[in-house]
């Protein structure tokens, strides 16, 4: 898998929450979203094999509670507007900050590092995510 980064970045944050990172697998949305997701269907091997890996991925932050301050959980998406329609299930990652940690979102893209969990999660009768990330670092 090739290295992934948006060009010409001026990154606003460099928050590290662990002393030592595992090997970081660079991942992009093209890999995560390159299939048609169907509820209950098995996910492709190429994304299943990322389960449990420490990955690094870039994107835009949207908090889960609408706030941009002291964010402790957010979803990471590949666009900063819904101008191309809504993100599909495989086009976002639900990210959780480490216990007691938070950060502020100023709308600029960030690179998030953490352990990826792959598989459907339901809230009530809705599948709400197939990708989740336990954040260890935000650049």
């Amino acid at each position: 898998m090739r290295a992934f980064r948006l060009p010409l970045l001026a990154l606003p944050l460099a928050l590290s929450f662990t002393a030592i990172d595992d090997v970081i697998v660079p991942v992009d949305y093209q890999t995560l979203s390159g299939f048609e997701w169907q509820e209950g269907a098995a996910l492709p091997a190429k994304v299943q094999k990322l389960h449990g890996k420490t990955i690094g991925i870039q994107g835009f932050v949207r908090s889960l509670d609408g706030s941009d301050e002291q964010i402790t959980a957010f979803w990471l998406i590949d666009q900063n507007c819904d101008c191309a329609g809504l993100p599909r299930m495989n086009e976002y990652i639900v990210c959780t900050m480490p216990e007691g940690k938070s950060f502020a979102n100023d709308g600029r893209p960030v690179r998030v590092v953490g352990k990826l969990e792959v598989g459907e999660v339901r809230e009530g009768d809705y599948v709400t995510s197939i990708y989740r990330l336990a954040v260890t670092r935000i650049d």
């Binding site: 948006l6 060009p7 010409l8 835009f60 590949d78 666009q79 893209p109």
Partner: peptide, 17 residues
């Protein structure tokens, strides 16, 4: 297509489509 506004690339949507 590429035009970065302080890290936010206006060109990404065009490239994707």
């Amino acid at each position: 297509a590429e035009d970065a506004f302080f890290g936010d690339d206006f060109g990404r949507l065009a490239r994707k489509e």
